[in-house]
Design a protein around this nucleic acid. Structure first.
Length: 374
DNA sequence: AAAGCGGGGTG
DNA sequence: CACCCAGCTTT
């Protein structure tokens, strides 16, 4: 399909370039398959600069397959706090437990076994097999598709699953005997450092001379990519509940459901708001009290607007209003209607290290602490 | 094939 | 502000 000369030039020059230009990244300092695995899962949808501190902390806390396999899940989730896509953490631990129990702690070295592990798809299996074990398997991520689509001028939509299959076949052909580990890393490194999304740095590219997109003046138009749908808006009203009496200085938090969005993470109590929109603060607070009661959180009394904030997921945008609220002894004694379900907890600032929160709630709690210091 | 699933960055 | 980065699982 593509000329053998163009392919061979690409593989040889890319490998040579990588030897002198590769970054010194923490997960490149060993070939420990377990460490490579952790890094690859963290790097899914996440940039290198973000991952580095998480990687250090994670391997420090869970240095071996056994350590991660036997750790409490909440500790793993806490170590993942802020990285996003938390099913990655739960799947990783589940898969590491399987490696611990079924494979005596040795990460499988064949495509079928490693691909059967939770959270290990075509990219991650190829990355581990090639980088850690030097197996000639392709590892096609977004960087690789961008580089290949340009160098070979491939105009298929890279969002289509069928395009990845084409890319994998091509990437497999490009691996020269015995070079899988370095070549796959070189391919991704080129995409990250030179053949970047917006304005590729062609003049420093080691394979510019035979790049088809460059020859055609197409490098900025590739890869072809269908646009994602914009996130749908959701209104959310949050109750920042400050304790009184024996709970003075503490806040009320709760754990999210076992499945779905932000599964098993902790959060401030809140309700989804009708899309018809906000009313006055007075009306909002009254509505919030009733809505929380319908969630069986009875006796909450919002009393003051605190802040507005927004949290953007890939598919939803939460537009949030946060209200201060009380649930105190006075309330309990006068009404006798207070009831807090078991998955709620009173925590102080010193307890936060024991719970994993989505970033949006970390931001709200940090804002509250800053205002307290004033 | 499409949707669900977080959190960042840049111009 | 609009725009960009994106792999695995489930439906």
């Amino acid at each position: 399909m593509y000329s053998e000369e163009q392919q061979l030039y690409f593989s040889k020059n890319l490998l040579e370039w990588y030897q002198t230009h590769k970054r010194d990244l923490p997960w490149r300092r060993s070939k420990n398959p377990y460490y490579i695995w952790i890094s690859e899962v963290m790097l899914q949808q996440t940039r290198v600069d973000t991952v580095i501190p998480y990687f250090h902390r994670f391997v420090d806390q869970f240095p071996t397959v056994e350590a991660l396999a036997t750790a409490p899940e909440e500790n793993v989730l806490k170590a993942w706090e802020g990285l996003g896509y938390y099913s990655r953490a739960r799947n990783l631990q589940s898969a590491v437990r399987e490696v611990h129990e079924r494979y005596e702690g040795v990460v499988p070295q064949n495509k079928a076994d490693i691909s059967a592990l939770k959270g290990v798809g075509p990219y991650t299996s190829g990355a581990i097999l090639s980088i850690a074990y030097n197996k000639p398997e392709p590892a096609v991520d977004g960087n690789v598709m961008r580089v290949l689509s340009r160098y070979f001028l491939i105009e298929e939509d890279i969002m289509k699953p069928s395009t990845r299959t084409i890319m994998e076949k091509l990437a497999r052909e490009l691996i020269l005997e015995g070079t899988a580990s370095d070549f796959n890393q070189a391919l991704m490194e080129l995409g990250a450092m030179v053949c970047t999304p917006r304005s590729p740095h062609c003049l420093t590219c080691p394979v510019m001379a035979h790049c088809s997109a460059r020859e055609a003046g197409m490098e900025e138009a590739l890869p072809i990519k269908k646009k994602a749908k914009p996130p749908r808006p959701e209104l959310r009203a949050v109750a920042f509940v400050e304790g009184t009496g024996e709970n003075a200085g503490k806040w009320l938090i709760r754990q999210r459901p076992q499945e779905g969005l932000l599964a098993r993470m902790w959060e401030l109590p809140h309700v989804e708001w009708p899309s018809s929109g906000w009313q006055s603060d007075e009306e909002n607070m009254s509505e919030l009290r009733q809505a929380l009661a319908e969630q069986e959180l009875i006796g909450i009394q919002p009393d003051e607007w605190f802040m507005d904030t927004e949290h953007i997921f890939s598919h939803i945008v939460w537009k949030m209003k946060v209200y201060r609220a009380k649930l105190g002894d006075a309330n309990r004694q006068s009404t006798g209607e207070e009831w807090i379900p078991f998955h709620y907890r009173w925590v102080g600032p010193e307890d936060l290290q024991n719970y994993a929160f989505p970033n949006v709630f970390v931001r709200i709690m940090r804002e509250w602490q800053e205002q307290c210091e004033e």
